[in-house]
Simulated scan of single mutants.
Amino acid sequence: MNRWRTTFRLYGEDAFFEERRGKSSTGRPSEKELSAKKKLKKAEARIKYLEAENELLKKLEELERQARKRS
């Protein structure tokens, strides 16, 4: 809490919305404008991730369903 208070006193409320840990920090997403090609690539990667997540959840539901039948 003391560090947060000091940061607030020195830099104000905006300090909590800015990345202050260095140039190579990955703590917050970049706000740079992406090209259409990069946006598409990023969207495709997100879709692939979400599809894999959905498959995992389906498998988990099936395993839970099978466990209930055995009980």
Rank of each mutant, 00 (worst) to 15 (best):
Met1Phe: 05
Met1Asp: 09
Asn2Leu: 09
Arg3His: 10
Arg3Met: 09
Trp4Thr: 13
Trp4Val: 06
Trp4His: 14
Trp4Gln: 05
Trp4Ala: 15
Arg5Cys: 03
Thr6Asp: 08
Thr6Phe: 08
Thr7Tyr: 07
Phe8Ser: 11
Phe8Gln: 14
Phe8Val: 02
Arg9Ile: 11
Arg9Ala: 14
Arg9Phe: 11
Tyr11Ser: 14
Tyr11Thr: 14
Tyr11Lys: 15
Tyr11Ile: 03
Tyr11Trp: 13
Gly12Ser: 06
Gly12Cys: 15
Gly12Asp: 13
Glu13Trp: 15
Glu13Gln: 15
Glu13Val: 15
Glu13Ala: 15
Asp14Thr: 12
Asp14Cys: 09
Asp14Trp: 12
Asp14Glu: 15
Ala15Tyr: 04
Ala15Leu: 02
Phe16Trp: 09
Phe16Leu: 01
Phe16Ile: 05
Phe17Pro: 04
Phe17Ser: 13
Phe17Thr: 14
Glu18Leu: 15
Glu18Cys: 05
Glu19Ser: 02
Glu19Pro: 00
Glu19Lys: 00
Arg21Asn: 09
Arg21Ile: 00
Lys23Asp: 07
Lys23Pro: 04
Lys23Leu: 14
Lys23Ile: 11
Ser24Ile: 07
Ser25Phe: 03
Ser25Gln: 08
Thr26Pro: 01
Thr26Phe: 04
Arg28Pro: 01
Arg28Thr: 02
Ser30Ala: 07
Ser30His: 03
Glu31Phe: 13
Lys32Ala: 12
Lys32Gly: 01
Glu33Tyr: 03
Glu33Met: 02
Glu33Asn: 05
Leu34Glu: 04
Leu34Val: 09
Ser35Phe: 12
Ser35Ala: 10
Ala36Glu: 14
Ala36Asp: 14
Ala36Lys: 13
Ala36Leu: 04
Lys37Asp: 11
Lys37His: 06
Lys37Trp: 01
Lys38Cys: 04
Lys38Ala: 10
Lys38Asn: 10
Lys39Glu: 07
Lys39Met: 06
Lys39Pro: 01
Lys41Arg: 15
Lys42Tyr: 05
Lys42Glu: 13
Ala43Met: 12
Ala43Pro: 00
Ala43Trp: 13
Glu44Gly: 00
Glu44Ser: 10
Glu44Asp: 00
Glu44Met: 01
Ala45Thr: 02
Ala45Pro: 02
Arg46His: 03
Arg46Asn: 05
Arg46Gly: 01
Arg46Val: 04
Arg46Glu: 11
Ile47Val: 04
Ile47Tyr: 04
Ile47Gly: 12
Lys48Cys: 03
Lys48Val: 03
Lys48Trp: 04
Lys48Ile: 02
Tyr49Thr: 00
Tyr49Arg: 07
Leu50Ser: 11
Leu50His: 14
Leu50Thr: 14
Glu51His: 05
Glu51Gln: 11
Glu51Cys: 06
Glu51Trp: 12
Ala52Tyr: 01
Ala52Met: 10
Glu53Pro: 03
Glu53His: 06
Glu53Phe: 10
Glu53Trp: 06
Asn54Pro: 00
Asn54Gly: 05
Glu55Val: 00
Leu56Pro: 00
Leu56Cys: 07
Lys58Ala: 07
Lys59His: 04
Lys59Asp: 00
Lys59Val: 00
Lys59Gly: 01
Leu60Gly: 05
Leu60Asn: 08
Glu61Ala: 15
Glu62Thr: 11
Leu63Asn: 01
Glu64Ala: 06
Arg65Gly: 00
Gln66Phe: 08
Gln66Ile: 09
Gln66Asn: 08
Ala67Ile: 01
Ala67Thr: 02
Ala67Trp: 02
Arg68Pro: 00
Arg68His: 01
Arg68Glu: 07
Arg68Ala: 09
Lys69Tyr: 03
Arg70Lys: 02
Arg70Glu: 12
Ser71Asp: 03
Ser71Val: 08
